[in-house]
Design a protein around this nucleic acid. Structure first.
Lengths: 215, 215
DNA sequence: TGTACATCAGTGAACGCGCGTTCACTGATGTAC
DNA sequence: TGTACATCAGTGAACGCGCGTTCACTGATGTAC
């Protein structure tokens, strides 16, 4: 390979001296490289190479590798929020059905966008030092929390568990399944059923335990 | 610091030309460095430096950094299995109470030994290519599975869910909580309750959903 | 419509650094007799 | 108990390599007039 821009890059403009959209290309490079070797398995120079650009070019767009990764995580959270709220649809028309869609959307995201998911939850980008990232992750969790609130609102007031707790339970369960079994390519363990069904069953049992007659 | 062996190393023999127990020292070095900078944040040379030894010395004991990490993960699974089966105690004297202990032991391990936990679940050491590691992780999961079996055996035969599924649910929930909130130092998100209680509540709801009257 | 200029987004050479890895070596330890 | 020797587990120098980062530069693009 002598005159390609990395490998796999989408075929945008034929590109002369200026790349045109290097920032986007770097994000895509990071995603591809994460998919290939994990969030810790690539360097800033790798990303430049993948985008078909000199090693100095990325500095025009990101301070360093961590800034690139943080941007990937940020975009990931935005897509994630979209996916979740699109599935939840404010609980319409049926809260229980919508809740089921929500969990599936979570797993689907983890499976379809494992690189984003990695950058968001496993790359160790500290959300503490990054307000934008923290807000984005908060918004994603907000969807789950709103759903939990509608869910507990279905129960008689005296039996209602704290919505926040319910949200955390569902999130933990879903994240646990996603991170243990959710990855399409190299599933870490053989499962007797697909992760989606594993989650659905777990949520059904859990909701029954809460006193919600989902099934 | 001029004549120390790294920082923090336990004070064994005064050491001359031979270290005496370099292999153990390297494992401890890896644990310390993981705690400090994550499983991807240190090099083979770092481990040597930490152990107070030349950069070439580790090659006498491990083929490369990955082999060291895999050994850490292996030892982690062994300790983990011990901790879990010690807590489970074959379900004695009361299966439900023992189950509760088991979950707590899981979280305690993740919290007290975050470096081992990282090496086991987050370092990306491929268990596929390492039979010993796979077996060790299988044994750890075996404890959970045996517990799930005793648990479902308490139910009337017609209502029994598959024990494997129950084990996977509990494992996912626990791992989810551990990896989202379980880390002592840099908890990623503020929680309204400690992780142990979050887990306990989740398990209670779940067991109630199964039809087991734990509470 | 054309020209001059400012700005932007790249290049490529250069640098220092630390890592991984090999190698001949050497000090310490264990064992045969 | 002492001596000779084999083996083990370290050293330290050396190497090639790729990364991160800076810098003066330059080609392309946009805009004022």
């Amino acid at each position: 390979m002598k005159w390609g821009k990395g490998s796999g890059q989408g075929g945008d403009s034929p590109r002369g001296y200026h790349h045109g959209n290097l920032k986007e290309a770097l994000v895509r490079a990071a995603l591809a490289l994460i998919a290939e070797k994990g969030p810790a398995g690539f360097t800033f120079a790798d990303a430049a190479r993948w985008a078909g650009v000199s090693a100095a070019a990325p500095y025009r767009h990101y301070r360093d590798r961590d800034a690139l990764l943080a941007d990937v995580a940020l975009r990931g959270f935005e897509l994630f929020t979209e996916a979740l709220s699109g599935a939840w649809k404010d609980g319409q028309p049926d809260v229980l059905a919508a809740f089921d869609r929500l969990g599936k959307a979570y797993l689907t995201f983890a499976k379809d966008e494992p690189s984003y998911y990695s950058a968001m939850f496993e790359a160790g980008v500290s959300a503490d030092s990054n307000a934008g990232l923290r807000d984005a992750s908060e918004r994603a969790f907000g969807v789950l929390r709103a759903a939990a609130e509608k869910l507990v609102a279905m129960m008689p007031p005296k039996e209602r568990p704290p919505a926040l707790m319910v949200a955390l339970h569902i999130w933990s369960m879903t994240h646990g399944i996603a991170s243990l079994f959710g990855r399409g390519d190299a599933a870490r363990r053989a499962l007797p059923m697909p992760p989606e069904e594993l989650l659905e069953a777990a949520v059904l049992v859990y909701l029954r335990g809460l006193g919600l007659s989902g099934a």
